[in-house]
């Protein structure tokens, strides 16, 4: 495993830890999109179907379990925890997220490496992950007040896929890996969606001001 891949996984893990910290310590999910969190549950559930059938490494299995358990528990907290759920910005989190699921599934049926159930679902998870952040970005734009934990959560989440891009370049050059257009293009789209957010995040960080996205 190369340094970019490890750094990518660690920022991904860090983003989830930041979100859980917010939920546990502040008992708040203000500014967090339940729609995006539900999409991540679907992403991990469809991608990690191989968890019981294919063994890669201890690291791989543990990380998959961590991502599955944490994504399910975040959704559970936002929906059912008696304090946390009252902080959810229901009225502003109105992105119709199922409208992302259907086109991603159709695209996975059309463009995939091999037409099998597992391969189509794996491809679907990549397409869906690429756009899963959209409800969250829309909610951020509507929020007058973005707290630090929420801003950092989205930043680490974007950094994760950005680092994966370097990982793929490295693997292609150093390990002579094959062309893998489906994850590469999905990952590129996913990272590009954060460009605007990154711009304002870094700007506010430099000026030591509170993060605010223009409406």
């Amino acid at each position: 495993m190369n340094v970019f891949r490890l750094a990518g996984d660690m920022t991904h893990l860090l983003s989830i830890m930041v979100l859980l910290l917010k939920i546990h310590s502040m008992k708040s999910c203000a500014g967090i999109s339940l729609k995006t969190q539900e999409l991540y549950v679907l992403v991990f559930a469809t991608r990690y179907l191989d968890i019981f059938t294919t063994y890669f490494s201890f690291y791989n299995t543990v990380m998959k379990i961590v991502f599955l358990v944490t994504s399910f528990s975040i959704v559970w907290y936002m929906r059912h925890h008696k304090v946390v759920r009252q902080t959810y910005d229901r009225d502003q989190d109105t992105f119709r997220h199922h409208l992302l699921v259907i086109p991603c599934f159709l695209l996975a049926l059309l463009i995939n490496h091999r037409f099998t159930v597992r391969e189509v679902l794996w491809t679907f998870s990549l397409y869906l992950e690429a756009v899963a952040i959209l409800p969250q970005l829309v909610l951020l734009q509507r929020s007058r007040n973005i707290d630090n934990l929420t801003g950092n959560y989205v930043f680490f989440l974007g950094a994760y896929r950005g680092l994966y891009l370097f990982n793929w370049i490295y693997r292609y050059m150093a390990e002579k890996s094959q062309l893998r257009w489906i994850p590469w293009i999905s990952g590129l789209v996913q990272t590009a969606l954060y460009a605007d957010f990154f711009y304002y995040y870094i700007k506010s960080w430099k000026k030591r001001e509170k993060l605010q996205l223009p409406a």
Binding site: R5, T54, N60, F67, W122, Y164, Q178, P183
Partner: peptide
């Protein structure tokens, strides 16, 4: 197998 080999990523 190519499709398996690429799935060691998360």
């Amino acid at each position: 197998d190519h499709s398996i080999a690429s799935k060691d990523e998360l």
